[in-house]
Design a protein around this nucleic acid. Sequence first.
DNA 1: CATATTTGACCCGC
DNA 2: GCGGGTCAAATATG
Length: 324
Amino acid sequence: MQSSTDMLLSQLNQTYELAKKLNENLNLSRIEICRTIAREIICSTQKAICTAMTSSAGEAELAFSNGGGLHVERLNNEFRDKEQKMSKRRKILANTTSQERVRTDPGAEVPPGDGHSWRKYGQKDILGAKHPRSYYRCTHRKSQGCSAMKQVQKSDENPLIFDITYLGTHTCFSLPQQTASTTLFHNPQQSLLDQQNSLFLHLDFQDNLEVKTEGSELENQDPTTSFSFSSTPINEMNPDSALFCSSSSVECGYEGILPSAFMSPTRYGSNLYPLCERHNKADSGLAEILSASGTDSSAIDLEFMLEHGEMDTEVTFDTSIFFN
DNA sequence: CATATTTGACCCGC
DNA sequence: GCGGGTCAAATATG
């Protein structure tokens, strides 16, 4: 049987080959072929991510300091068991859940802030638990349609410990001075798991489509190959790093094809815009969004966040925020 | 007055 | 029917 490392290497190699193929076709402006290849790359990368996660699944705990002396523990295995028991309704959300255990100071009735603003919308006594569970939603749910939620419950064994379950991903931008990627990766709340499972594809749209290298340790070392991937194994990745799929010189014939809402620099204060999960299906992928409407010649970065576990060949992301 | 929290009622899956 | 999750009116807070 193939080891997970071999499988991972094989998948990454396949992704690399696909990326090369994409580059060739981009140069020839074969848009339809590019679309198909791009989707294959996404799928292949997701598989690699999942393989990496599976191979490191034994890491039940991943502790790190949280600035204020807090101790955060990841409980991957325990949480997987919980997820299996979840109801159908809950399972829909389970695609983007993570659990943290936060130790706080004696006497504290709420866990410390996590960088996001939350609005409590319910509290419930849980059968067999000593402490009630509190339900929170992102404050920006109304204004920005952010679907992130969390559940907070004091641990039975240790009242200094809070079990926090995060449901969904933040699509809001409460820190406009930061770019989208720094908001995500410097935010202690954003779970490490989510960070490791996020694939960011940065695209620059100028007169032509340009997929830009950013943050990757591997710049284009081979001048004939425009795509490069970080060689850092996922389970060794720094929380502040991401897996970037990138290119510095891919060109094709897209011109003036972005909705004007994409271009508004005022909304997020940067060129980075989120395309997040699960609301609208973009069945024909990137090009469908690109061909929506509008003209502009300035640069823009698009981020594609691909959540862990979504192995569909379809790419799904939320475009609704652009049309508010 | 706007926003956040509390809490009983309601909904839904099992 | 039970238990967990959500709603929404009442209340609190700044």
